[in-house]
């Protein structure tokens, strides 16, 4: 399986993602934001970080960079595109997934482990993961998911919510919402579910020397499902 990770100026989780993808069997290529064409890939990843210093709005400048037209075409033709953290912010700015990510409700940068419930298991990203709840890491200042009421209705009608913040038993309640996201949303799909945007970083949970290994479940499952 071939993957590509896009590096923007200010990306800082691109190499972690490269390590994670390779560890679980992907042949990964790093792609610079000024490139025009994507290498042949089964999965394209927009990594976390602070692309363009979060100028204007997080992800807004990166969403207009040269490589993004190829990424948008790839996604629109059914290719799998995953945006993590800043990558999620870039995805919403391209319009590939609905909504926006606002400043965290309590204006704090949040860096901690959280639990998320897998709310839709019918996509290649989460299909066949046995656990309903994963412990993953978040580190963001703008992760407060927001969308209009019409968008929310559409997202829910199409079961586009991928993961929600919850407790270790999978209970989705306000008190387990770290950033004020509507309905505790931590990640969403596009309508066709080939594009996934999520705030948590699975690539930070892939080794016993890190604070958990639930990210390994995610990547092992992912490579098995892309076939």
């Amino acid at each position: 399986m071939k993957s590509a990770v896009i590096t923007f100026p200010g990306s800082n989780c691109d190499r972690d993602m490269d390590v994670a993808l390779k560890k679980f069997g992907f042949k990964n290529k790093m792609v610079w934001h000024q490139d025009v064409e994507l290498p042949k890939s089964d999965l394209v990843v927009l990594p976390g970080g602070f692309s363009y210093g979060d100028y204007l709005r997080c992800g807004s400048m990166a969403s207009k960079s040269k490589i993004m037209q190829s990424v948008i075409n790839f996604a629109n033709s059914g290719g799998m595109v995953m945006g993590i953290c800043n990558g999620f912010q870039i995805l919403v700015e391209t319009g590939l997934v609905p909504g926006v990510l606002l400043r965290n409700k309590y204006l704090e940068f949040i860096c901690k482990n959280v639990f998320v419930k897998i709310s839709a298991k019918d996509s290649a990203y989460f299909k066949n993961i046995k656990n309903d709840v994963l412990e993953l890491h978040i580190a963001h200042n703008e992760g407060n998911y927001f969308c209009t009421n019409d968008q929310l209705k559409e997202i829910e009608d199409n079961a586009q919510v991928a993961i929600n913040y919850c407790n270790n038993e999978g209970k989705i309640e306000k008190s387990f919402n770290p950033n004020g996201s509507i309905k505790n949303i931590a990640g969403i799909f596009n309508k066709e579910k080939n594009v996934l945007g999520m705030m948590p970083h699975p690539e930070r949970m892939i080794d016993s020397s890190l604070s958990g290994e639930d990210g390994s479940l995610f990547f092992k499952n992912l490579i098995n499902n892309i076939k």
Partner: peptide, 8 residues
């Protein structure tokens, strides 16, 4: 196209 995000 860029300066505003019309969702918000």
């Amino acid at each position: 196209k860029l300066l505003a995000n019309l969702v918000i």
